[in-house]
Structure formats: C-alpha cells, structure tokens
Amino acid sequence: MATAIPTARLGGSTVEVTRLSFGAASIAGLYRPVDEETAIAAVQAAWDAGIRMFDTAPHYGLGLSERRLGAALHDKPRDSFTVSTKVGRLLEPHHGGGNDLAHGFAVPATHRRVWDFSADGVRRSIEDSLARLRLDRIDLALLHDPDDHEEQAFHEAYPALERLRAEGVVGAIGAGMNQSRMLSRFVTDTDVDAVLCAGRYTLLEQSALHDLLPAAAARGTSVIIGGVFNSGLLADPRPDSTYNYAAAPVELLDRAVRMRLITESYQIPLRAAALAFPFGHPAVTSVLLGARSAAEVRDAVRMSVHPIPGELWDELRVEGLLAANVPLPTVRKG
C-alpha cells in the first residue's frame, strides 16, 4: 500500500508533483552499470512509497533512463503519475563502439549527444522522448543545461515549449540547471511553471537563496531542488567524497563533517537533515531523490520523514554552519 505523500501544483499549471520526486539518472548506469531488473525495482519501490513524480532526460544513459522509466510505469494509470523530461540534447546513432563513461554513464555508446535548442530540435526531442517513455504527453518539459546556449534557449527553445504547452503536448514547462543565475532569468523574463535547481540550495551551499528563490517566490514559480547531497559529500562525508562531481575541497569536507557531528548528536543521520533542509524555503515544491536500487529508495524515503527537532537547526546556525538569513524548516515530528 502506497504512503500518501503531500502534493502541490507546479506554478500556475494543473500539473501536480509529490513532495518527493524520483530522479531516474542513476537507473541508467550513472557511474556504474545497473541491470534492468534492479532499475525497474527501484522505480517500483518509489511507487510503493507513494512517490508519483519521476524525472528523467535523454542525456541519462543515452535514452536508457527514459526507456526504463517508461517500462516501469507502463502498467500504471496514466493520470496517477507525473513525468518530467528535458530538451536540449538530441540523440544521434553512433556506430563507433565504446562506452559512455566520458559522460558519466556505464552504457554502450550507441548514440552521441547533439546540442540543439532550436525550435525544431525541441519538438523533435519531445517526440523522441514520448516514444522512449511510451507516453502520449509529457507532464513537465525542462530546458536542460542551456548554460552555453543562453540566447538560443530564450529566443528559440523557450517559445517552442510555450507552443507545445498550448497544444497540450506538455503540461508545464521550465528549465533545469546546476546554476541559479540563468534560472532566475527564466523565472523573471518568461512564463515558466517550474525550474529544477541542482546543487545550489543545500546544507552546504545556498547561492540560490540570493537570486532564484526570492524571484520564484515573488512570481509563484515552483522550484524543484536536486543534488541535495552535493554529489555525495552530504550523504557520507569522507576524505574521498565528491562535491559537484569532483574531489571535495578540504574546507567543504570539514564543514560537512562538523554538520554530521551535530546531527548525529541528536541521533539524526546527516542525509535526513540534507533532505529536509530545502523545504525551509516557501518556493521549494519538491526535492529530487536519485537512487539506483529499491534499497536506496527505501532509505531515502525513511530519511525524508525522520523527525528533526528545531534545536538541531538552531545549533547549526549558532556554530556558523548556516547563515542567519537562511530560512529553516518547520519542526517535523514524524
């Protein structure tokens, strides 16, 4: 029996997402292989836990994430779940052999990625994703990492998404990035429903608090937060931990270890605090949980409902690990 997880609408759209979202990059062999059975079981575990928002992209495993997610959700009632995918990278057949580890995925290099934020490229990307996902519509379509394609993204790709939304091919539109500056521009200069911000609003880094989150709150735009563990550092801070997919700087590792000492003094795992933290800001609608197995999903869900006393947040602030202007989550009693 699925647990009831709170839901909210994205911006001014009719698209609803659960407070917890399932990030489907890992089931496509992120960094190391994941077999089909394990991947499908991870999605099913998320479903069993009550998660109904699933995020994917063509980039993840060269389409493997979308195919596996489509297979896992194929027998579920279509109106009972929300799928988010992304545009900006088209997949072209590649016959040179090898693997895709240079892009982070342990899968055969059957395709190559081609950046394309043109209007035609956006429409083609959505059509390809619909086929891989085996769906008749996309609930949330996001411009994916347009960092080096800013003007084309705003002047060609974004209007194309608006047209697709008007046609009902997609339900809500937005952008997903690892930075907050350009996402803030999307919020203020366009009519996006939501943005996905990865790694910029976590226990360790709150740069999105200075631009994106205030803008989103003012416009009524929903913010989905990804990367709450900062690519591993906040899950288990160790000397070999990564931050932003590279070796963690010594000063950040030290801060993470200090945070862990405080959370564990309250018998609370650091990752539970990391999952709870983003919800302190009213613009945050959902937090994305990346997992490659059913066990990882179940652990993340347990962490997400772990009771956390207000004294823990206060101590992090007193110790200088959270700034005075950072909004804190309300006390959660489980």
Rank of each mutant, 00 (worst) to 15 (best):
A2K: 13
I5C: 00
L10H: 09
R19C: 10
R19G: 07
F22Y: 14
A24G: 05
I27M: 03
A28R: 02
G29E: 08
L30H: 04
R32I: 03
P33T: 10
V34R: 00
D35N: 07
D35P: 02
D35A: 03
Q44N: 11
G50P: 04
F54A: 05
F54C: 04
H59Q: 03
H59K: 01
Y60F: 05
G61W: 01
L64N: 02
L64C: 04
L69G: 10
L73I: 11
L73M: 15
H74P: 02
K76N: 09
T82A: 07
K86T: 01
L90D: 01
P93F: 02
P93T: 02
P93N: 06
N99S: 12
D100Y: 15
L101S: 07
L101E: 08
V107R: 05
V107K: 03
P108W: 07
T110V: 03
V114P: 01
W115S: 12
W115L: 14
F117P: 01
S118T: 15
R123C: 09
I126P: 05
D128S: 05
R132C: 01
D139A: 06
L140P: 08
L143M: 09
D147C: 08
E151D: 15
P159L: 13
G168D: 12
V169C: 09
I173C: 06
A175R: 00
M177K: 03
M182L: 15
R185W: 02
T188R: 14
T190H: 07
D191C: 09
V192R: 02
A194K: 04
C197H: 08
L203I: 06
L204T: 03
A208R: 13
P214N: 14
P214D: 13
S222W: 06
I224A: 12
G226R: 04
F229S: 07
F229A: 07
G232K: 03
L234C: 06
A235P: 00
P237K: 08
Y243C: 12
N244D: 15
A248V: 07
V250T: 05
V250R: 04
L253C: 07
R255T: 06
R258L: 12
M259P: 03
M259A: 08
Q267M: 04
P269H: 12
P269D: 07
A272R: 09
A272F: 01
P278M: 11
H281D: 14
H281S: 13
H281M: 14
P282M: 14
V284A: 14
T285N: 09
S286E: 11
V287P: 11
G290F: 02
G290M: 04
A291C: 11
A295R: 12
V297P: 03
V301A: 03
M303G: 00
P309N: 09
E311A: 15
L312T: 08
D314I: 09
V318L: 09
V318C: 03
E319V: 03
L321K: 13
L322M: 12
A323T: 12
V326F: 09
P327V: 14
K333R: 15
G334I: 13
